[in-house]
Amino acid sequence: MASNVNTTAEVHHGGAEHGGAFPPFDSSTFASQILWLAITFGLFYVLMSKVVLPRIGGILEARHDKIAKDLEEANRLKADSEAAGAAYEKSLAEARKKAQAIASETRSVLNAALDAKRHEAESSLSTKIAAAETAIAGIKAKALAEVDGIAIETAETLVSTLAGESVGRDEVAAAVAAVTAK
């Protein structure tokens, strides 16, 4: 059955296809193939060069431009942010320096004020001490002087009371002086 069909098929080809030549080398079909290839390929070439290639080329070009622009933009933004970071760092350092300066200045001003106050206090204290010392010395001298007077008076009173006779003040004073001098 199958071989039957096969033979009929071969007979058919033999009849229609020029004695069963190997089709790719069958020169009777060449003219038709060349003509139609020229027509179709020519059409294809025109379609490609006039429609398709400008189209794809345009798309690629647009994308290329966009990417280049975006990359440039990204680079620029990166540089910007780096610059901003550097500026930030710089101002931070400046602020630190400034703060340090302010702090040391404040410290020295305060120290100076403190010193001045201390000096003032010390000097006023010493004048006061000196005044007090002179007052004390005065009082002491006065007291010592009064001690002599009291001793003379007491001795005079004692002598007059015990001996019943009045003694001359000068004598008493001389006697007291003799005692205190010892």
């Binding site: 009777s28 079909t29 003219a31 038709s32 193939q33 003509l35 139609w36 179709t40």
Partner: peptide, 10 residues
């Protein structure tokens, strides 16, 4: 003289 038929190849 040329056979330029529209064939399955065309």
């Amino acid at each position: 003289h040329y056979d330029v038929s529209f064939t399955n190849s065309s």
